[in-house]
Structure formats: C-alpha cells, structure tokens
Amino acid sequence: MHFLKFLLPVLPALVSAWAPPSISGYGLVWADTFSGAGATLPNENNWNIIDGKLNVNNELETYRRSTRNAQMSGGNTLQLVPWKDSSVNGGWTSGRLESKYTFTPQANKKTLAQAQIRFGSNDIATKQGIWPAFWILGDSLRHYGGWPACGELDIMETINGQLTGYGTTHCDVYPGGICNEPSGIAGRIGIPDQGWHTWTIVWDRTTGNWQTETITWFMDGQQFQQIRGSQINNWNVWSSLIYSPLFFILNVAVGGSWPGNPNGNTLDGYGAMMEVAYVATYST
C-alpha cells in the first residue's frame, strides 16, 4: 500500500487530456480542465487557494497554498492531498480551492454544474476521518451574509472512505429552520468504486413559477436528490439557492463533527486524495 501511494503522483501524467463533455441541449459556459505542468499550483486566475486553518466543524486540517496539498498532476487533473503534519495545529494539512468565478442560474433556463472526480487508491479501511467534497456556497458569504443564510449546495460529499455520496442543501437559519440545520436536507447514493464518476447538479427555472422550480442532483446521470421551491416554501430562502451568485469549492477536510477524527489506521498522501478532471457550468 505504501509503495503504491508513492507511485500515484507519476501515474496521472499518462492520462490523456480531459475535456468537459458535450451535453445535449446545453452550451458550455465556463470550465477549468486543470491543464498545466505537474507539481504546479492550480490556475490562480480561476481559484483562491486557501491558506490557513478555518476552524469549522471541529475539523483538524490546516489548508496550505502548496503543491504538496493542491497541485496539477501534469495529466490534466487536480490533486488535493491530505498529509499528516505534526508542525500544525490539528496535525494535518490539506488542500482547498474556492472559485473566483461566480454564476447565477438564469430565468427561464436550466443551469448545470458538473465535475468528474475520483478518490485515492488507499484501502477504504484506511480513510477514517477523510472528507472530500465538491460543493457550492452563496457569494453573499464573501460580502455581507452569514451561514447558512447564504445558501449551500453540497453536490458530492463522502466520508471515511465509505462508498456513499451525499447531496445536501443547507439554508435559512442555524440551528433548525427550513433546512433542519445542521443536518440540512440530504439525499444519498451508492458509489460503485473509488474510480472516476461524474457529479452533476441542475437548477431548472423553466417553469416560470418559483414554487415549481427545482434543484436536482445526479451521479453518472442517475438522480439521487431533488428539492423544489414549494418544499422550501419561502421565497427569500429559495432565492439564496437559485437566484443569487454562487461559487464552487473543492476540498479534502480531515476529521470533524461528521466523520470523526482519523484513527491509527488512517493513511495520508496521494492514496487519500481527491482528484478532479474538470469543473464546468452549462446553460440551455
């Protein structure tokens, strides 16, 4: 296992170039395909690379603007890698990217966001406390708002190496509120394996009535979660999820209130990473 872990940084360079797929009825609006030389930072015109400890959810990691934690593979992928590090508070470093790009789902259209993701090859039994995620926050959080009023849509989260993906909505107030914080409104789906899978969310504003608008989650084209305006039943809260500017987050957290902390079996490094082939938005 340790031998394979140290081989992994070389292998992705053998992968052919990735590109966001053509999707029938949609046009590509924005994408990052993570092209570039291996062992370099992601494109900082597109991403804020977080550097520091965020002190959220009782997580252990300190995020670093370092190619040790957030790097281009050289094979047109991004690798976010958690490492044990006794020099930092919490004992772990990791990678987190937040997009400078923002988007607002448009009236009378469908807007689609998507990423292709795989997980490192460490055995599932060695991933206690590892928490990769592809998610969205309302841009108001950066300017004047608080959480969860800003709105949060978790497109994909998985914990402890378990082959279960979660899609969750956080909104309104904490604790309680419309989204039952801190749990949120969640759906789940089984993940076939730790290999490449496509995670998608679609905002449908084609009905002309906010109560019948929907937000829907998919893995590899299979729907596993949906919310609609009438379920939220509050225009202001619904607005934070579908009428307001949004931005992407890619990260690997370590420990925290949900997964619990790593144990003596937890391995770090490339075998515990999240790897991303592209992130893209589309619109009809």
Rank of each mutant, 00 (worst) to 15 (best):
S140R: 04
I155D: 08
G75E: 10
G90E: 05
G167N: 12
S66G: 02
W30P: 04
V279N: 01
N108K: 13
F248Q: 10
I232T: 02
T206A: 01
S183A: 15
L14R: 08
N108H: 14
P21D: 04
F3E: 14
N233T: 02
N48Y: 14
A186K: 05
L97A: 04
W135I: 08
A107K: 10
G187I: 00
V173A: 13
G260F: 05
Y101N: 07
A13L: 14
I155R: 05
G229S: 03
A253Y: 06
N233F: 08
T40R: 10
G27Y: 05
H170V: 07
P20F: 05
Y243I: 00
I159C: 11
S99N: 08
S87Y: 10
S16K: 12
F119E: 01
D85Q: 11
V252H: 06
P82S: 11
R228Y: 11
W203G: 00
W47Y: 06
K110A: 07
V276C: 07
L78K: 08
S22I: 11
Q128F: 07
S22C: 04
G195S: 14
Y166F: 15
E61N: 13
G177L: 02
S230F: 05
P262C: 13
S35I: 06
T33R: 13
T111I: 01
V202G: 03
N43S: 13
Y166D: 08
R228A: 13
W135P: 03
P148G: 11
T207Q: 10
N251K: 05
K109P: 01
P12G: 07
K5V: 12
S86G: 12
W199K: 01
N160V: 09
G151Q: 07
M274E: 03
Q231D: 13
N89R: 11
E98M: 11
M156H: 12
W203V: 00
G167C: 11
L8N: 07
A31D: 12
G145M: 11
L97H: 03
P182A: 11
Q79C: 10
Y144C: 15
E181C: 01
S140G: 15
G120M: 09
L54F: 08
R64L: 14
E213F: 06
M273V: 01
G176L: 07
E213G: 05
L153K: 04
Q116P: 02
Y101T: 01
P148Y: 12
P148V: 07
V56A: 10
D85R: 08
W258L: 05
W92M: 00
A17Q: 09
F224D: 03
N263V: 09
Q128L: 10
L60Y: 12
P182W: 12
G176T: 07
V29A: 12
G161C: 13
G271V: 04
T62N: 09
Q223I: 01
G165E: 11
D85C: 10
N265I: 01
Y166P: 00
I201S: 00
Q128G: 10
W47V: 04
M1P: 09
S99Y: 01
K109H: 15
T102V: 09
G190R: 02
V81Q: 11
M156A: 07
E59K: 01
V254D: 06
E98L: 12
E213V: 03
I178V: 14
W92Y: 15
T206K: 04
G52E: 09
F134D: 06
P192A: 02
L60Q: 14
N122Y: 11
